[in-house]
Design a protein around this nucleic acid. Structure first.
Lengths: 212, 212
DNA sequence: ACTAGCTTGTGAAGGATTTCACAAGCCCCC
DNA sequence: GGGGGCTTGTGAAATCCTTCACAAGCTAGT
């Protein structure tokens, strides 16, 4: 397959949300124009995004909501349930472990890990915080391929190396430090300070409308 | 000033982190090549990014670490302290209110707000959770221009409208719903599910190396 | 069956961002 | 004071992404 831009994947995720809302309202079909309006983009963009993966619409009618939901779920890999482990049960890790928005989208948090003995054994929702030393065994046993890293910067690279060796293929990192991943492992980093800094840049430089 | 790409601002924030680490190690100068290696980009990219704002280096030598730190801080607007209000004291809001990574970068959380009477009055670090009804008065009094929105989707637009009316000029949103902002207000949204979905897309489509 | 009115899918154009490549400048050493 | 070895700053080229614009196709109504 041709290379797909990250911006395209991000928009597909967004369209999926609108489609699911439409489905909940018993909406039958939707046009590229309506999806565009909801997502703050153009109808051509919506059609182009979808066209990378096939042709899902009917000319004159638009897209059948249920069919398009199914198609995008499959494109994004959401047609199955993904077990996710959360590494680090501090404030952020604990918050994410209990975040409802994951389960509704096909993700299931199957383990939360920490190195602090004071935290091990505590319960978060239906999960018990486990010792970091169990990570390797659990990842293999649970066949988890996705890890969310919520540990301090100093510990991030070591833990990333450990989980990738144990079989993790994708990592969402919240530590504000650059990480190296082995080839074949996908990494995304979310840096809260950077997000705020993009905002202060906009404020400082008075850009009309600001970034999106 | 010419329009600056968001990707450029994001990288500047990253360079700043590396420069601060260099400063902590008493490093005196740094080349675009070294910054590029740390940030996973190219030296030409680093130089181009900086060139939009001026010329900060010395040929043959590189950039003076302290000077460049100061320059980038000024570009990003980090040469002052920004008061930030957090709206919503659920799991994510509470975690962010106590997040250390903000204060070290010039942000100061000056208020945390919730509508739930059970939460109002509870303490988070040095802050007391306050009633949402106090938002307008406090934003004016504290001259806060930045708000972090950590409320459920249904409440997000209403609260965004309220805080922008009260003087907020930039919003970092964690609710997974699209928001409309008045002109002149900057908005960024972080959607945890979308981040994971970009990863499952990469896993499903076996893209070499995956997204960054 | 034909027409009017939409809407898709997609090449081509346009715009934005990244990479290339090199002249110009600085430091250090001899 | 001059030369060698680096490194910056920046136009130009290349690549990537978005928007344009239109032929083709579907539905509904008559």
């Amino acid at each position: 397959m041709k290379h797909i831009a990250e911006s395209t994947v991000r928009r597909l995720s967004l369209y999926l949300r609108f489609l699911e809302e439409g489905e909940a309202r018993a909406q039958d079909t939707i046009s590229s124009g309506e999806l565009a309006r909801l997502g703050g983009t153009t109808s051509a963009q919506v059609r182009k995004d979808l066209s990378f993966f096939g042709s899902f619409g009917k000319r004159g009618l638009g897209y059948h909501v249920k069919d398009l939901i199914e198609a995008i779920r499959e494109i994004l890999g959401l047609d199955k349930t993904w077990p996710v482990v959360i590494v680090g049960a501090g404030k952020i890790g604990a918050a994410l472990a209990q975040y409802r928005g994951f389960s509704s989208r096909g993700f299931r948090v199957v383990g939360v890990y920490d190195r602090d003995p004071a935290r091990i054994g505590q319960r978060l929702d239906g999960l018990t915080i486990r010792a970091e030393s169990e990570l390797e065994r659990d990842i293999a046993k649970l066949k988890a391929q996705i890890a969310v890293l919520c540990v301090p910067s100093e510990a991030a690279q070591v833990l990333l190396d450990r989980v990738t060796k144990a079989g993790i293929r994708a990592v969402l990192n919240f530590a504000p430090s650059p990480l190296r991943v082995p080839k074949g492992v996908a990494l995304r980093s979310v840096n809260m300070a950077t997000e705020l800094e993009i905002l202060t840049f906009a404020l400082t430089n008075r850009i009309e409308g600001g970034p999106r």
